[in-house]
Design a protein around this nucleic acid. Structure first.
Lengths: 139, 139
DNA sequence: CTGTGTGCAAACACTTTGCAGGTGT
DNA sequence: ACACCTGCAAAGTGTTTGCACACAG
């Protein structure tokens, strides 16, 4: 899918920074943080990366991924997920490998709904599994 | 339970900072971050709080609580939980209220085991539910 | 007395903000 | 042409480290 028209669909201007950051997300399977993006992309300023992430987050193009690494990580929203519900319900599982450090979205795993005591309202569900991923286990 | 002997049991010296920080955790139901502890305790240095948290974490007295607030939060381990398994398996649910900002441990809710594709090994399960808590909903 | 804990200073890492100038449409 | 995007500088916030001194056991 063409990035230029994708950005247009979200009423965003097509710029080099946005193109590069978005295609970096598309290439990478794992969630990315600003510091990680900065290491891969040298053509734009650090602040631009922060602002682009904020913009993409606002437009529902990426979502925040919980992580204990100290810096916020983000991952591309699957088109289907974003279309399904208006309130971004990213109720899928994230897996963080303690060996390679990658955090990836696992879409195949079903999250059993949580039942809380009456009075609680759940708006968002975040599941982070930590352990060793299939890639590291094979090496 | 007496804090002095509790610390002794973990082979830790009894000091004023440790006493204060531990009793703050005991008093509070919600998870605490270093900045929050610093606001409550003025008798010790900021760095001492970080180091005490690191020590308690190492000894399994507290555990890390996932949160999107930008600063790491910690909560007391329930005695029973820590005794049950040697590898701290804090497979309980955390609930963060978007109104009051408190993150609390919900021990009553059962977490259905997650089944991942072969090759993945799960060492830790973290569930963070976000929404509105019972306290805020009633006001 | 000895090893551990603490305070202070400083550095480091991540993130946000203001402003002037550049660019996409 | 205009609104929006970017770079630079600076400041704000959270966290770690080194070293000398203090104190618990």
């Amino acid at each position: 899918m063409d990035i230029k028209s994708f950005l247009g669909k979200h009423k965003l201007r097509h710029t080099e920074s946005r193109e590069e950051i978005l295609s970096l997300f598309a290439k990478h399977n794992a969630a990315l943080s600003q510091p990680e993006i900065e290491k891969s992309i040298h053509s734009c300023d650090r602040v631009t990366i922060y602002r682009t992430l904020a913009t993409y987050l606002e437009k529902g193009i990426i979502h925040k991924v919980l992580d204990d690494s100290g810096s916020a990580k983000y991952a591309l929203c699957r088109e289907e997920v974003c279309r399904k519900t208006h309130y971004h319900s990213h109720d899928h599982v994230h897996f963080k490998c303690n060996l390679c450090g990658d955090t990836t979205c696992i879409d195949e795993v079903y999250v059993t709904p949580f039942i809380l005591p009456e009075g609680f309202v759940i708006r968002e569900v975040n599941v982070l599994l930590q352990g060793e991923c299939i890639k590291c286990n094979r090496q």
